[in-house]
Write a protein that binds this DNA or RNA. Structure first.
Lengths: 348, 348
DNA sequence: TGGTCATGGAGAAACGTATCTCCGACGCTT
DNA sequence: AAGCGTCGGAGATACGTTTCTCCATGACCA
């Protein structure tokens, strides 16, 4: 390439990168030759030289061989899409990597930083990454592992909001469908529920199950409604809980919302068309994905976070709001449906 | 690292990669020191030296700033997930890149090959990649651009199958909701429909709209049912067509399936719970994603495809079956629903 | 005793870029 | 005429691997 243009390697590099002191004449000539030859600078060499690959990792704890979990598929898909976009907007590309099997693929990819979704307490992978000096930003407040920064929903406020909403709709005994794992989401949500129960003097009514097992969810939903002290309203922490609870309610001849109020946390729009439509809590994964990636890239590029003078032990955190999408399943007085009244079929 | 272990660089490389002739003793010693130091070989340097990055790109033509289209979101999400898994299973990582803006991110990433979803005719990006000697495998039979290999559904057979299915359910005038773009999927499907119309002597009844515009779809669905020669069955090529057609049918007081049979192509499971549930054609994106990635990696690693001696102009192609998920919307005699008959509520 | 061979490991080149240093040439000032 | 500043660009080095070549050491055999 340098030879073809009749100049030195230095000149080529300077011309293409807009550096050095070169007359525009030389610059354009070099670029023209490069174009003609279809020359592309080697990304690998640049990475080796500069120490920057322009690649960031996205990883999530998994419970199988799939690179992401099923229970949160809609959440993850939206979040990953937003993260990919945000990265591209700033000139980075995003690689999805499995949290397990650290040594296979991870060593083969040069990463400038990593986004970790839902790290577990004392996550060994996060610690490992952090030890290597790589910026790590987590989606979900980290339990006990050091991260550069983190973003999370305000789960406490979200759960309290839902419980208030259900109470106002007439619920007297609100139940919870929760998980057995120790991630932040499950933990904070459950704690908020228990705290609320204490404050209003209701005895807790909940069932916990391993969230990664789709069948266990259906069983737990059934168990919750089969209790002698059956709740008259239920909040389900995981996406499939809505349909599971609806099916269980049908088995016990509970009308929703008349006999049972229902809310679940989900990003899926199927709940807009179920019978009845189910109120859902959206964690706004798009905003989370965008924020997380931007924080990560700020850290990579050495832009100090402006909001805090000194990061605390777990880096600086940021709480994002959630959104409650109220539908019929959580309203005792359903709003008049907008479906048109049946009229006689008109021909053509 | 080499100094810390008291051996040469060569020995370190050999020990870690399992090459060269070294006694197990030396090997384990080097590995132990590496472990203690937290040493990781530089992926950038390895890539530079070997010419392999272990990275493959996944790109899809977009109609906005988002890295993937909305109309096919469920398809894309599933396909991308399968592709990511398949890549990881073979030690590769997958990077999602936008089809537009060739020069920003693309130059910064060292790719071993690329998967292209739905390349357009004479796709300049595909041609560019191919010119650089990078293997390119496309999802969707390429129109006129050179690719290493391609995978596609048998759209012809799929459409014919649906039309037969509808005809057997009693349809006399089958309409089509199609797109205006020139991608293979739209083109082949429409051609199959027109051919079928000719063969059975039905006049074609279709509306075409720009598939990337979600509103245009609803309008086109309405237009199709507003025609004087209104069809008594419709097949919609794109995911949102099902709900759009259902809404339009409601406006014209057409009962589904009694007055109007409905089928659409979709990967979304919302159509299992609509009223009535809608028959869908699944393109089996998971299998496509897996196959595409495996073909690409075969090409990267120089594994010749076994099925064909010499690749034709557009590389070797492979047709994958689709799956018709029959639901109430396309059956005049609906099967008895499997919902359990109501039983009296049993207490606890 | 000299030659051959296997073993264990070191040396050095090359991958392609970015960047620091330096050099020649030219114009200008004193 | 000598010195100085600027412009345009070349040289050289380092980034950290992989891999090819080659060397030293013994052991074994004729």
């Amino acid at each position: 390439m340098a030879a073809a243009a009749g100049v030195s390697i230095t000149t080529v590099s300077d011309a293409l990168n807009g550096k050095g002191r070169l007359p525009d004449e030389t610059r354009t000539k070099v670029r023209e030759v490069a174009e003609r030859l279809g020359y592309r600078p080697s990304a690998a060499a640049r990475t080796l030289r500069t120490g920057r690959s322009g690649l960031i990792g996205l990883t999530v704890t998994t419970y199988g061989q799939e690179p992401f979990t099923f229970t949160e598929f809609a959440y993850f898909a939206e979040m990953a899409r937003a993260a990919t976009s945000a990265a591209l907007n700033r000139g980075y590309a995003l690689v999805v990597l499995p949290a397990s099997s650290r040594h296979d693929v991870w060593s083969n990819v040069a990463l400038d930083g990593t986004v970790v979704i839902d790290p577990s307490d004392h996550d060994p992978m996060v610690a490992d990454l952090y030890r290597q000096g790589l910026p790590v930003v987590s989606d979900g407040k980290p339990g006990n592992c050091p991260v550069t920064a983190w973003v999370d929903n305000d789960h406490h406020a979200a759960v309290l909001g839902i419980l208030e909403h259900l109470a106002q709709a007439g619920a007297r005994r609100i139940g919870l469908l929760t998980g057995t794992s120790t991630d932040t989401y499950t933990r904070l949500s459950t704690e908020a529920y228990l705290g609320w129960c204490r404050s209003v003097g209701q005895e807790p009514l909940y069932e916990a199950y391993p969230a990664h097992d789709p069948c266990a969810g259906a069983v737990a939903a059934d168990r919750l409604l089969a209790r002698p002290d059956r709740p008259d309203a239920v909040y389900g922490l995981f996406d499939p809980n809505g349909t599971d609870l609806l099916a269980a309610a049908r088995r016990y001849h509970l009308r929703v919302p008349d006999d049972l109020l229902l809310v679940c946390c989900s990003e899926s729009d199927v709940y807009a068309t179920t019978e009845p439509p189910i109120t859902t809590l959206s964690l706004k994964p798009r905003r989370i994905g965008t924020t997380v990636v931007n924080l990560l890239i700020d850290a990579i590029e050495g832009i100090a976070p402006a909001d805090e003078t000194a990061a605390d032990q777990n880096g600086s955190g940021q709480l994002m709001p959630t959104e409650l999408i109220v539908r019929r399943s959580s309203q005792r007085r359903p709003p008049r449906t907008t479906v048109a009244a049946p009229r006689p079929p008109g021909e053509a």
